[in-house]
Design a protein around this nucleic acid. Structure first.
Lengths: 230, 230
DNA sequence: GTTTGTGAACCGTTTCACAGCA
DNA sequence: TGCTGTGAAACGGTTCACAAAC
């Protein structure tokens, strides 16, 4: 430990698996809040997120929240704490690049808006698409991207273009000054360290699934396996 | 029983992080194959997938492929080996449930078809949607799901419905006999152990991104980093 | 009784380093 | 020389177990 006496702040580093689970806890908390529950136990959050209860307590410890022994966590304040920790306590401005099938689906995606995530503008390289409206936003040509990002202080770029152009779009978004990228193209994009990029890769997800199905199918899986191939 | 050296099979268990990287290697291999390259080094695959070169060699060792010291791996045969290992060497039949924005985008998704992933039927709970066609497939009412899965020997179910109905759809898919589920609803679904379910959660991805952006912003970050990534 | 917070053990993955081969 | 294959060490995350708090 660093020698700070821990006071108020929650400046702890949140690991990636923890971050993912925090999202899941938040969903459960929202459900509970809607149904009027006042407190939750780590066990219940664990069930909802598929995590062990000790794991839940560790995770919540990381973001600096405390529970009441014998009672659990206060639903409302824990929700606020998680939102603050992952940054969804405020709204974010984004641009969407790519007005194809996926782009249109994202523009209409309910959960984004509910989370304070606003798609301020849509761009597409195809001139025949520019000018049309999707979800009430007019599609603009790529030339307008950089100025739009600067003028409207856009923070997030969403890539929903074919894999061939993903890297180029990423470069333009970074050059325009976005602070983070959400990439829906099945291609890893290279970005500077200061700009985090998270990929949502349908194809990779499908491949993971198919692998698991195959593994389930064939081997009843020899229970223990040490050293030698059997 | 154990103790004998049995050489042939490649029935090794593939861990989840390895599975994900195999997908990425495969993409790079396809690019290389298209551009006529005959061999690759572990280093080059590592750069493409964001992994260390020793990591690449370990991964490829797991699926039983061997490289040539001083030369690398043969692009074509390595591609085949990975495809066989993750199960995309053959085609898979799937049904899509949910003909909303995301469902329609998925039905049209190029990479699925390219990977031998065939969406054999589409279902929707909304009777006013049933009967319409998306991507050339007629949308059917939910009643028809179970029989379709059985009759057409469907292996994979894709969930693209609002979170409120995700669990119910998952239950029906499992009851109908699918072997795996790809879930695009932002809600974890509970399924029996024998049926793997992989979630693709846009909202969670967004939350991870926002967290990273926040962390970059505030903490100058103790910076302990090597390697490069530009 | 219940449930939290946390050090310590555990486990799988990643990285290192180097022998061996082309 | 260039590159693979692989033990061994390092790392980080998860689980365990239990004392403390309600």
């Amino acid at each position: 430990m660093g020698g700070y006496t821990r006071v108020v702040a929650v400046r702890a580093r949140v690991s990636s698996p923890t971050a993912h689970r925090l999202s899941l806890y938040l969903r459960e908390l929202e459900r509970l809040a809607a149904s009027g529950r006042a407190t939750v136990s780590s066990r219940q959050l664990g069930v909802a997120a598929g995590a062990a209860e000790a794991q839940v307590r560790k995770d919540l410890g990381v973001i600096g929240t405390a529970g009441l022994p014998g009672v659990g966590y206060v639903v409302e304040s824990l929700g606020d704490a998680i939102r603050a920790a992952i940054g969804v306590h405020r709204s974010w401005r984004a641009v969407l690049v790519g007005a194809g099938n996926i782009g249109r689906a994202l523009a209409a995606y309910r959960s984004f808006r509910e989370e304070g995530f606003e798609i301020a503008a849509v761009f597409d390289a195809d001139p025949s698409v520019a000018g049309r409206r999707i979800s009430g936003t007019k599609v603009q040509p790529m030339d307008a991207l950089a100025e739009c990002v600067r003028r409207q202080e856009i923070e997030i770029g969403i890539i929903a273009v074919p894999p061939e152009s993903a890297q180029e779009v990423a470069d333009r978004l970074v050059a325009a000054g976005v602070q983070g990228i959400l990439n829906f193209a099945p291609r890893r994009v290279r970005v500077p360290d200061r700009v985090p990029a998270i990929g949502v890769d349908f194809r990779a997800a499908l491949e993971r699934l198919v692998l698991e199905v195959s593994q389930r199918d064939e081997g009843p899986v020899p229970a223990r396996r040490r050293g030698r191939s059997a």
